[in-house]
Each structure stands twice: as C-alpha cells, then as structure tokens.
C-alpha cells in the first residue's frame, strides 16, 4: 500500500481531462487550426530516490506542432529530445506545464489509437518473429483477425522484410529491427507519428528509404514528429525544427527561415579566378558592404546547430519562446533568430 503511494510521489500527472471529454471517436477536425501537439511551459525534473531534484531535463518548453507538418526536434545528447517525446506519449509525467496531444492529455490511453511511435532503440519483443510482432500490436489495437492479416502482410512488404518474416527478432540486424519497428508504429495507420531517431543504425540506402517514407507520410496528410541528432536527415525532411540544448528551447522555426540569414548575402558561383574575385570584392565594398569569408559551401544546418550550441554555452540561460506562448515566470526570453 505504501509502496504504491511511493510511486505516486510527485509524479502524479495533473490531468484536468475527465474520461467523458476524451471521446475516442471524436476525430480531430483535419482542417481546424487546433495544433496537433500543444506544449505549454513544459518542465521535467528527474529526482532521486529521496525526491531531491537530480537533473532538470526540460525547462519551460512551449511549442506547437501543426497538422500535416514534419517537425524535427534537434539537440545534442541529453538535451531533452527523448524526454519530450516520452512526455508526449505519457511514458513520463511532467513536473510542470501542460501537454495537449490530438486534443487530449498525454496520459489518456485513447489518444494512442491515432498515434504511432517508433522508439529510439529496438524495444520490441525479441522472441517474436516479424509476423507475430505485427500481429501482436495489431491485436492491441483491437483489430479483427482478417484486418490484422491484411495489414501485417502490407506493412512487412512495405518495410521490405518479407524474406525475414519468420525469423525471430533477436536474429535481426539493426537496420531490420528499425524497419520492423517502423512497421509496428504504422500498423494502426496513425494520424500522428512520433519517430525517435528514425535513421540511426540505417545504411545510406535505408536512410534514404526512411526519409522517403517520412515525406510520403506527410503527403498522406499525417503529422510527423521526429527527433534526431543527424542534421542532414532533419534538414532534408523537416518542415519546422526546434533545437534543444540542456532542456531549453534554443531555436524554433521553419528550416528555410532558420537557415536564411536576413543580414547577410551569400553568393555561390562557379569557380572564379583571382582577378574576378578582386573585382567582385571591389564592387561589394563600393556598395558599403564587406566580404567576410570566401569559402566552399558547407552543410548549413550543421553550422547553425553548432553555432546555437556554442552560443548557449557562452551565454547560458537564454531560450526561445514562441510569440504566442505565455511568458514564463522566469527570466525574460531572448529570441535568438530575430
């Protein structure tokens, strides 16, 4: 009895959603302006056995994810991406703030009907084979036998595991496990797909397939939230990204917007000789501007990412707050991308 309360300690999710309002069958109106995910002032503090704060994993995070977009959560290891993901799924309970996901609270079981989740690593049951795995998850969605059979076949084929269908998952390579994980996440044809590091462990070809699939999901009108530290993937598929560092939101916006620096202009030409270079430099100086660097193009998101991380290190405590988010009671926010 006491042990039960000990579990209850501090982590009891605050929920103002009663089961009546959490109706399963109410589809979220596809055209409504209501964001698919609404996070307000979300904080998470991990505590030790005695209830003393150990790690501030997330600090007053606020963001929205709109329907139909591919949203990327970026950040170095330990920045709070996975914590955010788990808070969204109700696997963790927030220490403060609110989450609304598909119009319901995170701890509500019914929302899972419309969510697909691919965990970071392969957490599937290793003693099942591909068919059994998908069948099992299909049953959790209360699908009929015929329905399950059809879907299992379809998704195994989609992720290209038909040849390994009867092998136990413990014999699978990392890439194969990711594929079956993805199939498992999509088995219920979800409206919202949460992908935790979808491309880790995949070879370039597999990565390509995964990206194509994400884009296809977007084309089908589904909302995708992915977190990753592989910037190239994010850059390729995400409509909007958020960069987290040490539990704080540092950047948020459309990928193109974030990468377009309004105060600077970059020329990209075919190779020029020195004379032409000098001439161009002259023209620029004549217009009152100066040439800062002349180099070869780099992966620009990487640059942004590194810069963000470095700036955060130099000037800790500054974080990004979206305009429509209510101001938190902490220090004033600095909008870094302005």
């Amino acid at each position: 009895m006491d042990t039960n309360e000990a579990v209850n300690n501090e982590t009891m999710p605050e929920s103002d959603e009663t089961p009546e309002t959490a109706e399963v069958d109410t589809p979220a109106a596809p055209d409504s302006d209501e964001p698919v995910i609404k996070i307000r002032n979300l904080s998470k503090i991990y505590r030790d056995f005695w209830g003393r704060p150990k790690v501030q994993a997330l600090n007053s995070l606020s963001l929205d994810v709109q329907k139909g977009e591919v949203f990327g959560l970026l950040g170095p290891n330990g920045s709070g991406k996975t914590t955010t993901m788990k808070l969204l799924l109700g696997l963790l309970f927030p220490s403060g703030g609110d989450i609304t996901i598909l119009g319901e609270t995170a701890t509500n079981v019914e929302k899972n009907e419309r969510i697909g989740y691919l965990p970071e690593e392969s957490y599937l049951y290793r003693f099942l084979n591909a068919g059994e795995t998908l069948d099992f998850y299909g049953r959790l969605f209360n699908m009929s036998k015929a329905d399950r059979r059809e879907r299992v076949d379809r998704y195994i084929e989609m992720v290209g595991l038909t040849h390994a269908r009867h092998r136990q998952l413990k014999e699978y390579s990392k890439g194969m496990t990711r594929r079956i994980g993805l199939a498992q996440a999509l088995i219920n044809d979800p409206d919202l797909v949460l992908l935790d590091e979808p491309t880790t462990g995949l070879d370039p070809l597999g990565t390509r397939d995964m990206k194509d699939l994400i884009l296809k999901l977007r084309d089908d009108g589904k909302t995708v939230v992915m977190c990753s530290h592989l910037l190239a993937d994010v850059q390729d598929v995400c409509d909007r990204i958020a960069i987290l560092y040490e539990g704080e939101l540092k950047q948020l916006g459309r990928v193109e917007d974030l990468l377009t620096e309004q105060g600077r202009t970059r020329l990209m030409t075919s190779r020029l000789d020195d004379a032409a270079m000098a001439e161009i430099r002259e023209v620029i100086e004549r217009h009152g501007a100066s040439v800062e660097t002349i180099d070869h193009p780099t992966s620009t998101l990487e640059e942004l990412f590194l810069r963000t991380v470095e700036e955060s290190r130099e000037r800790p405590g500054r974080r990004f707050v979206p305009e429509d988010a209510p101001a938190s009671d902490e220090e004033p926010a600095a909008n870094e991308s302005e």
Binding site: V109, Y117, L124
Partner: peptide
C-alpha cells in the same frame, strides 16, 4: 528493456 513502451503507447 522498455518493451513495455511499445505496449503502453498502443491503446492497451
């Protein structure tokens, strides 16, 4: 081993 994550994120 977090297998339960894949179950509780379903409507179980």
């Amino acid at each position: 081993n977090r297998s339960l994550h894949t179950v509780v994120t379903k409507p179980a």
